[in-house]
């Protein structure tokens, strides 16, 4: 867009001017950018812990002023799409699907292996092209109540008649979209043929009167209160339920969604070099372990040795191979159409 172009060129001109002014001096990136180093991530405890574990040490080390642009990941993604090349953020935290979308739109910078040195230690499932590396493994499998439900073997268990009225599924706008694709694969569909998945989910909603989970906290409340005894949910969140003595367990059923959370670097950031350093920091074993202690999501760096008390969240060897292999590009291509089908066929079921 003309608008974006002009804004970008103005930004370039401005930074160029500033660089010229400070050419003989220290050449501080802060002065060139005209804004603090800005990182986009969701707010709440997640954002606060990202800040404590990763961003604060990074800011100290680089003597940078930083700003947390707190917003839903999907909102940050749409802002980045709208301002491709002159992004208002210098890094953005989100799942693979969003990073893939941004990369396809050529709105991301590639990670520089010279700076992001730990790429090789990371599980391949946590990597996406050369532009994204998750710092932990987020598995969206099945959470179940160990007293009132049986250990699940598949997402299909949501349709079991004995769970009627006590199951839940994720909202499309939360993690329903990747889960729908994963479940769809389990049922023999693929990214271009979503019908088996849609029909099965609609069936679960209609027959088993599934609750629609709007966000992670909502899901935890449903499990805590016993209102729901089985639902697709996060490994880390389930581990935290266990820590809170809720009789819950996580099952890595076939076609569990593996997403992870990571930082990617929008193209055109005035802090491009610092952003690479931040991504490297998120792959640092010590930092990852620190984050895992809070989130209870396994680290993405295979070299991290989990202490005994975290043994329970360790990913069994070969488990990640059982996760769904989703073609994010296709998933993104169908975002809008499948949302419509979801609203029409699942929510109206």
């Amino acid at each position: 867009m003309i608008n974006a172009l002009s804004r970008r060129s103005m930004l370039l001109a401005a930074s160029g001017g500033a660089a010229a002014l400070t050419a003989g001096g220290i050449g501080n990136a802060q002065a060139q950018a005209g804004r603090p180093f800005t990182w986009a991530a969701t707010g709440g405890t997640w954002g606060a812990t990202l800040d404590r574990v990763f961003v604060e040490p990074f800011a100290r080390a680089n003597r940078l002023q930083v700003l947390h642009a707190a917003q839903l990941e999907s909102i940050a993604t749409s802002k980045l799409l709208a301002s491709c090349g002159s992004a208002p953020f210098d890094v953005t935290n989100g799942p693979q699907s969003d990073a893939d979308l941004l990369n396809d739109a050529r709105c991301l910078d590639a990670l520089d292996p010279g700076v992001v040195r730990s790429l090789g230690d990371v599980y391949p499932q946590a990597l996406e092209g050369n532009f994204y590396a998750a710092f932990n493994i987020l598995l969206f499998g099945m959470a179940w109540n160990t007293r009132e439900a049986a250990q699940p073997t598949s997402f299909r268990d949501l349709a079991l008649a004995r769970y009627r009225g006590r199951v839940a599924i994720p909202a499309y706008g939360w993690y329903g979209m990747p889960w729908l694709h994963a479940f769809n694969k389990e049922l023999g569909g693929d990214e271009d043929n979503i019908t088996p998945g849609i029909q099965a989910v609609a069936d679960i909603v209609r027959r088993n009167r599934a609750v629609i989970v709007e966000n992670a906290d909502h899901g935890s409340r449903l499990m805590e209160s016993g209102e729901v005894v089985i639902m697709p949910y996060w490994n880390g969140r389930t581990a935290r339920l266990q820590a809170a003595r809720v009789p819950a367990a996580f099952e890595l059923v076939p076609n569990t969604v593996s997403v992870g959370s990571g930082f990617s670097i929008p193209r055109g950031s005035p802090y491009a070099r610092q952003a690479q350093e931040l991504v490297q920091l998120t792959l640092d074993p010590a930092r990852q372990l620190e984050f895992t202690r809070w989130s209870l999501y396994p680290p993405s760096n295979r070299s991290v040795i989990l202490p005994p008390e975290l043994e329970g969240i360790r990913i069994p060897p070969g488990a990640l191979e059982r996760t769904a292999r989703l073609d994010w590009k296709k998933v993104n291509d169908h975002r809008s159409r499948y949302l419509e089908r979801w609203n029409r066929e699942v929510l109206n079921a």
Binding site: S74, I75, S78, L81, S336, N343
Partner: peptide
């Protein structure tokens, strides 16, 4: 409930979830 969606919800979902700005 899941069946009481209004036009605003559709706009929000298409804009934020589906990133389909034209629609």
């Amino acid at each position: 409930g899941r069946g009481s969606r209004m036009i605003g919800n559709e706009i929000y979902d298409q804009l934020i979830t589906a990133l389909n700005w034209p629609f």
